[in-house]
């Protein structure tokens, strides 16, 4: 089954076309990396897919349920609010700069949404959270506040926070680019482990080696378009001059 389907997505900011015509399908268990130069629209694509931004035109479908569709006259129509709330539960998003809630402890950052948004029982949330803390190596940090953690630890907490709602798809927007180089490894390792567990993920990243090892598919974006899409071998072995130049920089 397709967990995510984007058809002919377009998005502009006051006259500037940022996404020209993006179509993309992601199947259950797939790991898709998005690479491309700065300003090519990678974050905008993720923000439109996670409905933080309204796209101008196109179709957005999660698990065969339409979140938005085109009216045929160049505009997107979004589903009613209640439908969107339900559809929204299918995905999670991990931000570049974590966006943890600074006034909540690690434990509360992770448990609050499952308890008070999804209204899951306390016992179940505790079980989930303890498991996640262990999985992400954060057991001894559950009472800490975000300001007491390193960047790598904060990013792992934010991954735990997203996973606690048990999304079907997890989006990452440059999860390691706000981190010191020596801290990226611990976050990449966690994402790798998720990939091994067949978590469906869409990852915007500048970590070429990581994308190559981990991805089922890599998307190369440039100027608001998907210039090339294929297996890591296809992309890294491509003779397209732009792609070679881009990859060569890393």
């Amino acid at each position: 089954m397709n967990l995510l389907e984007i058809n002919h997505m377009k998005k502009g900011f006051d006259g500037l076309e940022v996404l020209e015509d993006i179509s993309l399908t992601v199947k259950e268990g797939e790991v898709v990396s998005i690479i491309g130069p700065s300003g090519s629209g990678k974050s905008t694509l993720l923000r439109c897919a996670t409905m933080l931004e309204r796209m101008d035109d196109g179709e957005l479908i999660y698990l065969e349920e339409k979140a938005a569709w085109s009216d045929g006259a160049g505009h997107s129509v979004y589903a009613p609010k209640n439908d969107l709330k339900r559809i929204q539960r299918h995905f999670g998003l991990v931000f570049q700069n974590f966006n943890l809630f600074p006034h909540y402890s690690v434990w509360k950052n992770i448990t609050d949404a499952p308890l008070h948004v999804d209204k899951i029982s306390k016992a179940e949330v505790e079980e989930r959270t303890n498991k996640l803390l262990q999985q992400l190596g954060l057991e001894d940090k559950k009472d800490a506040y975000p300001c007491q953690l390193s960047g790598g630890q904060q990013q792992r907490v934010s991954i735990a926070r997203a996973l606690a709602l048990q999304p079907k798809i997890l989006f990452f927007d440059e999860p390691t680019s706000a981190l010191d180089p020596e801290l990226t490894g611990e976050v990449l390792k966690v994402i790798k482990e998720l990939a091994q567990e067949k978590m469906t993920m869409i990852i915007v990243t500048h970590e070429m080696q990581f994308a190559r090892e981990l991805s089922d598919r890599i998307i190369f974006m440039e100027q608001g378009r998907i210039q090339k899409e294929g297996s890591p071998e296809d992309i890294f072995g491509s003779d397209n001059a732009r792609i070679r130049e881009f990859i060569g920089k890393f």
Partner: peptide
């Protein structure tokens, strides 16, 4: 910071929450 609103929105919090 707008990131606080965005994190809350993606986690499904209502506007009032």
């Amino acid at each position: 910071p707008v990131g606080q609103y965005e994190a809350a929105k993606v986690l499904g919090y209502s506007k009032a929450q």
